[in-house]
C-alpha cells in the first residue's frame, strides 16, 4: 500500500514536471475594488469563463484602499511570473497626476481591456429643467443653487465636471462630494442633490423606472440602451474634442511576465469575454465591450491618460502637471 502510494506520488510529480507549462498552479486575481462594486461584478463574471479556456484556477481576492493603489502596488511587488493578475478600472492612469502613487498601468501589460462605460448626466425628475441646454441656462440664471453630485478627484463625475467646465466655462454650482456613484445616485433619488454625472450602468435601472431623468448622454452618438435620450454633442459640438470618453475595466500582469503566460491569459480572457452570459451582462449594464489587448490596448491607455490627465489639470484638479510624468498634451 505504502509503496503504491509512493509510486503514485512519484508518477504524479514527474507527470506535472514533464507537462510543466503555464499555468502549473493557481493564479491570484487581485481586484482593486470591494465586493459588490462594478469592477468586482465584471471580474467575477468574466473570470469563470476565462478559467475554462485557460484550464486553470484563478482565485479572486478583493484588495481595497487608496483608490486601488494598494492593490496595484501589491501586484507590482509580486514576481512577474503570470501568477498574480491585477484587475482594475481606469483610476490608476491618474495616480501620478493626482499624487496617489508613482506607478500606473505603464508598469503592466494589458491582458484585456474588457469594456468601456458611458457617462450620463442625470437629474431628479422634479428639477425645473429637462435637458442639458435647459440645465445650463438654469444654472447660469441661478448661480450656486443647483447641487451637483461629485466623487473624489479623478472619479468619473469629476472628469465629466471638468469636461463641462472646459466646454461651457466654469459653472457656478454647489458640488456635494460622495464616495462613489452608488451613494450619490441614492442621494439624488432622496433629493439631497439635483444633478449627477454617473456611469450609465449604475443609473440605467432608476432611469427606466422614472426615478431620474437623463439630461444628456455624454457621448457623440445615441446610445442603444436609451435610443431616445439626447446626447451631449447635440447641444454643444465643443464636446467632440473629448468624446468618446468613459471608464474602463481591464486585466493586467506585470511587465516582464513570460510571453507564454501573457499569450495564454490574453487568449483566455478574449474568449471568456465573448461568452453570451458575459455579453448580456455588459449589455444590460450599458457597457461597451472592447476586448482589446497588446499594442491596441496600450495605445488606448496612453490616449485615455493624455486626454483625461490634461482635462483634469486644466480644471485645476491635479496635484502635479502631466508634463512632469512625460504625458504629452493631446494633439501634440
Amino acid at each position: 500500500m505504502k509503496r503504491m502510494l509512493a509510486g503514485a506520488l512519484a508518477l504524479a510529480l514527474t507527470a506535472t514536471a514533464a507537462v510543466a507549462e503555464y499555468p502549473e498552479k493557481e493564479i491570484q486575481g487581485i481586484i482593486q475594488w470591494g465586493a459588490g462594486g462594478s469592477t468586482d461584478t465584471v471580474m467575477r463574471s468574466v473570470t469563470p469563463h476565462a478559467e475554462k479556456v485557460l484550464g486553470g484556477v484563478i482565485v479572486l481576492q478583493n484588495m481595497t484602499g487608496a483608490v486601488g493603489a494598494i492593490a496595484l502596488n501589491y501586484v507590482a511587488g509580486q514576481p512577474a511570473d503570470g501568477y498574480t493578475l491585477l484587475m482594475g478600472a481606469e483610476n490608476p492612469m491618474l495616480y501620478k497626476v493626482m499624487g496617489l502613487g508613482d506607478k500606473d498601468y505603464g508598469e503592466f501589460i494589458p491582458i484585456s481591456i474588457l469594456a468601456r462605460g458611458t457617462a450620463v448626466l442625470v437629474a431628479r425628475p422634479d428639477t425645473p429643467f429637462d435637458d442639458y441646454a435647459e440645465m445650463i441656462s438654469y444654472v447660469k440664471a441661478h448661480p450656486g443653487e443647483v447641487k451637483f453630485g461629485s466623487t473624489g478627484p479623478g472619479g468619473v463625475p469629476s472628469v465629466i465636471n471638468a469636461m463641462i467646465g472646459a466646454v461651457e466655462g466654469e459653472l457656478e454650482v454647489t458640488r456635494v462630494p460622495y464616495d462613489g456613484d452608488g451613494p450619490a445616485l441614492t442621494a439624488l433619488q432622496g433629493g439631497a442633490i439635483d444633478v449627477m454625472p454617473a456611469v450609465l450602468g449604475a443609473a440605467i435601472e432608476p432611469i427606466r423606472a422614472g426615478k431620474m431623468k437623463v439630461l444628456a448622454i455624454m457621448d457623440s452618438q445615441p446610445n442603444a440602451k436609451l435610443p431616445d435620450a439626447p446626447y451631449v454633442t447635440q447641444f454643444n459640438a465643443g464636446y467632440e474634442t473629448y468624446l468618446p470618453w468613459g471608464p474602463f475595466f481591464g486585466v493586467f500582469v506585470r511587465k516582464g511576465t513570460p510571453d507564454e503566460a501573457v499569450r495564454k491569459l490574453t487568449e483566455a480572457y478574449a474568449k471568456g469575454a465573448q461568452h453570451p452570459d458575459f455579453v448580456k451582462l455588459m449589455n444590460d449594464r450599458g457597457f461597451t465591450l472592447m476586448g482589446i489587448s497588446g499594442k491596441e490596448a496600450e495605445d488606448f491607455l496612453a490616449k485615455w491618460q493624455q486626454g483625461t490627465a490634461w482635462l483634469l489639470h486644466d480644471a485645476g484638479l491635479t496635484k502635479a502637471s502631466p508634463e512632469e510624468f512625460g504625458i504629452a498634451r493631446p494633439g501634440n
Binding site: 503514485a8 504524479a12 510529480l13 507527470a15 506535472t16 498552479k25 493557481e26 479572486l60 481576492q61
Partner: peptide, 22 residues
C-alpha cells in the same frame, strides 16, 4: 474561503495543484 495567507517558504499553491491534479 480562499484567503491567501502569505505562503513564505511553503510552496502552497504547488501542493494544492498537486492534489487538484490527483
Amino acid at each position: 474561503f480562499t484567503v491567501l495567507m502569505p505562503a513564505g517558504i511553503v510552496p502552497e499553491a504547488e501542493i494544492i495543484q498537486f492534489f487538484r491534479a490527483l
